[in-house]
Design a protein around this nucleic acid. Structure first.
Lengths: 214, 214
DNA sequence: TAGATTGTTAATCGATTAACAATC
DNA sequence: TAGATTGTTAATCGATTAACAATC
């Protein structure tokens, strides 16, 4: 079945929300509970889940641990993912020790760079390899996800190297649309700043006219 | 007029695409040229632009410099934006020197932290201030955009401090939905990894059945 | 049983796209 | 003028939401 893209994104949000409930020792939640936390409609939650199965109990809601486990399977975080980061600059280094990753089953096993000064050194305990060793290292360490944290001009080239080395998916922090055959997820930092600039400008202009901020 | 959210996102993409054309010395482009680079439909480009005015010449296309200037005005990057980053950890420090920001009219003028070890030091030339000086410094430096680069548990609190200090918009790197009255743009790194995990799992399962990878 | 909440259908809403007259 | 490409309308597509029967 065809799953709407927004549904996939929300699955990650449900997962996080349910993790918080579990940490708080909550056993059962309703679609309404989840919806309130996430600022969406309860029917949205139920519809999203219904693409994958029937996980709730009528009259009762959802068993937090059970649903968490189901969603983990759906989005694939029931297993650990081996990750390599290409680009040992500031951003790549920061990602290496980013707690959100290690906490969520993403293990950074290698960094790659083309700067001889950096190769062989360690960043937060992770070795920096020569980019020319990419294919060999990816195979040896069974790396499945590649992260592009290099400057814009090098990104497409790195994407091709990653694809050739047998990587299965790419998280791209460079501000370019990549042409590849593997799935790519863009984290477009500059675009986020531009969007917030737009919204700030819009808000100040509507605030002048109007007191009912949309 | 109500502008679709996806249109706003694409405006940033058009801006970047046109910047590249300008750097390459291209004077005129058609909606088709832009669409091809961005993997969308030409009518999408024309429709998006039509929300804001008539910028093209029939039979000719769009004057690159002129359109760039128009879009810069629309998304608000015709002026410089003063930015403060809260959280002088790895991510906050990396953002301080992120070339994508300085290149696009976003100037990081201050870092904030609550760690006495860090306060007063400089990171990439930017002073780390005490978080308790937030309001004063935001006013003094005329900071308009705040960046949240603190751990999850502190994010909502920081958002409230930013709002109280008079900031106009927030770019949030913490994995929480914030409750504020100012515009927020989320950069959800963990969610991007989860999405790529989902897509990798899905692709390998469909690849087994099917050779026409969607 | 009565109350609550699910899973699902159908209606609504919003965004994308094709098509084409207008016009450079 | 002939060819190209815009701006815009209308049709299509896809996602959200309300409503409600099913059922715990």
């Amino acid at each position: 079945m065809k799953i709407p893209r927004p549904t996939v994104k929300r699955l990650g949000l449900y997962y996080r929300c349910l993790s918080n409930y579990r940490e708080d020792g909550v056993d059962f939640v309703s679609s309404q509970d989840i919806a309130e936390k996430l600022n969406i409609k309860p029917s949205q939650v139920r519809k999203d889940l219904s693409y994958f199965g029937e996980f709730g109990k009528r009259g009762l809601g959802y068993d937090v641990k059970k649903l968490l486990n189901e969603i983990a399977h759906i989005i694939g975080v029931n297993k650990e993912w081996n990750v390599a980061i290409v680009g040992a600059g500031n951003l790549g280094s920061a990602l290496t020790s980013y707690p959100g990753l290690s906490k969520h089953k993403f293990r950074v096993l290698a960094l790659f760079d083309n700067n001889q000064q950096k190769i062989g050194k360690k960043v937060s305990g992770i070795t920096v390899y020569d980019i020319s060793d990419l294919e060999r290292t990816v195979n040896k360490l069974k790396i499945e996800i590649g992260v592009i944290a290099v400057p814009e001009f090098a990104a497409q080239h790195v994407a091709e190297l990653l694809e050739k080395s047998g990587i299965k998916g790419i998280v791209n922090f460079a501000p370019v649309r990549l042409r590849t055959n593997v799935p790519v997820e863009d984290v477009d930092i500059t675009l986020s700043f531009e969007t917030i600039a737009y919204n700030v400008v819009k808000k100040s202009s509507t605030d002048l006219l109007d007191t009912s901020n949309d």
